[in-house]
C-alpha cells in the first residue's frame, strides 16, 4: 500500500476517538440511544479504518485472527452464561432479577453483561468478515 501521510496522521487522531465513542455507546446504552450492537459496529469500524490506512498485515498484528475467533465465541458465551447463571440462582433462563441484591440491581447487571456480550460478538464478527473479504485479494 502506498504510504499516505495525511491519511495516517488523521487516522491516528480519529481512531482513539472512535473507540472512545464506541465504549460510550456500549456503556451508556442504558440511558441513551445505543447498545451492544451499535457499539460493536463502531468499534470494528475503528479497526477497519486502521487496516485501510495502515495495511491489513499491520492490523492483523494488533488483533490476530485467532483472537477474533475466540472473541466472537466469547460474546455468545457471556450472553448464554448470564442465562445459565440466572438458572443456577433459581430463576428462569435470562431472568436477571436474582443476579443482584435486589431485582433492579440484578436487572441492571444482567442487561450490562448481556450488552457486553452482544458488543464483543458483533465487533469480532464484523472484523472477521472484513478481514476475510479484504484478505482474499492480498496474495
Amino acid at each position: 500500500m502506498r504510504p499516505n501521510l495525511i491519511l495516517q496522521v488523521v487516522a491516528k487522531f480519529v481512531i482513539p476517538l472512535m473507540i472512545l465513542f464506541a465504549l460510550y455507546v456500549q456503556f451508556h446504552g442504558d440511558f441513551g440511544p445505543g447498545g451492544g450492537f451499535q457499539a460493536g459496529v463502531i468499534f470494528s469500524a475503528a479497526f477497519i479504518l486502521y487496516s485501510l490506512v495502515f495495511g491489513l498485515d499491520t492490523a492483523e498484528k494488533i488483533i490476530p485472527a485467532h483472537w477474533l475467533r475466540i472473541l466472537a465465541a466469547l460474546g455468545v458465551v457471556i450472553y448464554a452464561g448470564v442465562g445459565v447463571a440466572s438458572l443456577l440462582l433459581g430463576g428462569n433462563y435470562l431472568d436477571y432479577t436474582l443476579l443482584g441484591s435486589n431485582p433492579i440491581a440484578g436487572q441492571h447487571l444482567g442487561i450490562l453483561l448481556v450488552e457486553l456480550g452482544v458488543g464483543i460478538t458483533v465487533a469480532a464478527a464484523m472484523l472477521i468478515m472484513f478481514f476475510a473479504f479484504a484478505g482474499r485479494g492480498r496474495e
Binding site: G29, F31, G32, A73, G110, V118
Partner: peptide, 27 residues
C-alpha cells in the same frame, strides 16, 4: 429494570431470548 432507555430494556431484558438468537445469528 431501572433502565431509562426502554429500547434497551425491551431488547436485553424482556426479549432477551430474541437478542440471544440475534447474537447467535451474527456469530
Amino acid at each position: 429494570t431501572g433502565v431509562p432507555n426502554i429500547v434497551t430494556a425491551v431488547l436485553a431484558s424482556y426479549r432477551g431470548f430474541d437478542t440471544l438468537g440475534e447474537v447467535a445469528v451474527i456469530f
